[in-house]
Amino acid sequence: MLIYLLRKILYAIPVILAVNVLTFMLFFKLNSPDDMARMQLGQKYITTEALMGWKKAHGYDKPVFYNTQASSWHAFTDTLFFEKSVKLLIFDFGLSDSNRDIGQDLKTRMGPSLAVAIPSFILSIVLSIVIALFMVLYRNTGFEKFLIVSCIILMSISTLFYIIGGQFLVAKTWHWVPLSGYMPGWGQFKFIILPVVIAALSGLGANARWYRAIFLEEINKEYVQLAKAKGLSGFQIAFYHVLPNGALPILTGVVVLIPSLFMGSLLLESFFGIPGLGSYTIDAILQQDFAIVRVMVYLGTVLYLLGLILTDLTYSYVDPRVRLE
């Protein structure tokens, strides 16, 4: 078990390194620090001094891979690649292009992100599973057809419309909840309820249809026939027999997402003014703050890989037949 875990982590390391190099290439090779400085300072009438000053202030004035001016190992450490990329590996995020401590920002913004992401994640899964079970329970009836059609319709509406429509109706027209904003503590309930419901709704159609396919595969197996022969009701079969067995393939798709919840939702947070990591990323993209975007790309990758490992672990825990070697 432990050896398996170690090997998985070892496998993840080259991937992390590759992502690191890839993002570095994207930000420092495809467009040079000069271009970046020009973008930040505005296009016209830039003097070379202003350019150099900006680069110096943000630490972009170093050579890319090898510093000929520095001595011994400083020749490698006193470079852009080391300062901006290698330091990410030990979670030293440095300063953003607007001179804020990224690590500190991440810590303070993680809470609001999770406050929205976790409830919406749970609500979405529970709702989808319940609807999928009802579809299987009432299969080949008009009710199932109605549910399937509703799922396809739900799937065909862009998340943006859910958010804009929800905000317009619930917050602006009916005044049930505040339009946007956030406060720590219990007062946040009224702020996060709408984003949570919208997040759950927007993923409902696709998830429910997917789970339905999984449950349909289960329903023809022999243990279901036996349960039916024993005289159990369809409801009991669905919730006590089909659900636990069908949960296994669902877990694969779900557990991998859990660590990524930290990243928050880009759209929801920016629309509802929640000061989480999602809106942080959006702001960085809009202000073209490459330092933050780079950190978020790296963080997202690490969390995804963590999710993959976590999936394997839960799999072996839930299904004793799966052994990790």
Partner: peptide, 19 residues
């Protein structure tokens, strides 16, 4: 696939804009 898609797209589009 381990890089968050939106962020990779954002990064590349920003790079393209600069270009």
């Amino acid at each position: 696939s381990s890089i968050p898609g939106v962020l990779l797209i954002a990064a590349s589009i920003l790079a393209m804009q600069v270009y």
